[in-house]
């Protein structure tokens, strides 16, 4: 098994790099800095770290003001509170005026685990994707998170970054290259494509290995940039495989699967199966058990591939 690191840990480390590189980078948190991993930045650069207390609306609004005055604020809390509690502040104080705020949300999806359904954001990508001016990024591992955070800091405008609590396998080395608006084809195949992001990417790679044993050639595409979406790559791969499975730790309504279905529906209608939460909330439990219970596993991906191949050949 590869080494594992949580994307939130990689975020904390990336902030330290940014803190040293750019004096305009400031970090805000809402009493979760130990969990979101912004606390180390706070220790190293206390004058540039603002704990706003348990007040997410004000967290986002203050970040907007800092951005309006030339700072590059990273506003962090759990995804459920950032997108849920402070949605309208994100929409009207950040996205509408296109202010340079980075909403770095951790603890997304059901792998929040034991805290339960109330704390598991499963609709955040759908909500953020629907907001004009918003860039939506979902990194798959620690290295990609590092690159996503650095790219977000360089980009001028609002960015939503979705990260997780759980340690996930390290997939990429420093030779990996993330770019906003680009999907990465990790593996070329001819029969079916799995387009995934976040922690589903490593499962997609594992599924591809197992499916190869059955003689099924699988493309794996990592779509960390949900918005802007790399339509060119998605259409090119779909043209090649003529069957697509999407995979995300998110409701199947409105997230990555929907985004890809929108593109393919208009440009290249293609048989699809979407793997994700089937319009249901999560619950308390160990992350691994929840992934199994809610069908976010390698086995579920393999089943989805079989299903989409039936559609393709049918």
């Amino acid at each position: 098994m590869a080494d594992k690191v949580a994307t939130r840990d990689a975020y904390g480390n990336a902030l330290l790099i940014l803190g040293a590189e750019n004096p305009n980078v400031v970090v805000l948190d809402a009493d979760l800095s130990k969990s979101t991993k912004t606390a180390d930045f706070g220790k190293k650069y206390p004058e540039r770290f603002f704990n706003m207390g348990i007040a997410e609306a004000n967290l986002i609004g203050t970040a907007a003001g800092l951005a309006a005055a030339g700072k590059i604020p990273f506003a962090s809390t759990f995804a459920i509170f950032a997108v849920g509690r402070a949605f309208e502040q994100i929409r009207n104080s950040v996205a509408y005026p296109k202010l340079n705020v980075k909403i770095a949300a951790t603890h997304s999806g059901i792998t929040v685990g034991e805290d339960g359904g109330s704390h598991q954001a499963i609709e955040d990508v759908a909500i953020m994707r629907a907001v004009p001016n918003m860039v939506v990024l979902v990194p798959a591992d620690g290295e990609e998170t590092r690159q996503v955070i650095l790219a977000a800091a360089k980009y001028i405008g609002p960015v939503y970054i979705r990260m997780g609590r759980l340690a996930v396998p390290l997939l990429f080395g420093e030779d990996y290259h993330f770019e906003i608006g680009k999907a990465n084809v990790l593996k070329e195949g001819t029969d079916v494509a799995i387009m995934a992001n976040g922690l589903m990417v490593s499962m997609a790679l594992e599924a591809a290995v197992e499916l190869a044993l059955e003689g099924i050639s699988v493309s794996v595409v990592n779509v960390a940039s949900v918005k802007p979406l790399d339509e060119e790559t998605i259409v090119r791969v779909a043209k090649q495989t003529k069957a697509v499975v999407t995979a995300e730790e998110h409701n199947i309504i409105g997230g990555l699967g929907s985004a890809i279905a929108e593109v393919l529906g208009e440009k290249l209608p293609t048989p699809m199966v979407r793997v994700g939460l089937k319009d249901t909330f999560g619950e308390s439990g160990r992350p691994q058990e929840l992934l199994e219970k809610y069908g976010l596993t390698k086995a579920a991906l393999i089943e989805a591939v079989h299903e989409v191949l039936v559609k393709k050949l049918g």
């Binding site: 400031v26 603002f50 609306a57 004000n58 986002i60 609004g61 203050t62 970040a63 907007a64 003001g65 800092l66 951005a67 309006a68 005055a69 030339g70 700072k71 604020p73 309208e88 502040q89 009207n92 104080s93 509408y96 005026p97 296109k98």
Partner: peptide, 29 residues
């Protein structure tokens, strides 16, 4: 709308949000 009108320092209108933005500008200062 700060993007459209010169002299407008912050886009506002949805009530309750202005003081937070003012605080952010003040912290930056």
């Amino acid at each position: 709308d700060m993007k459209k009108t010169p002299g407008v320092d912050m886009s506002t209108g949805s009530l309750g949000q202005g003081l937070s933005a003012a605080n952010g500008m003040a912290l930056a200062g």
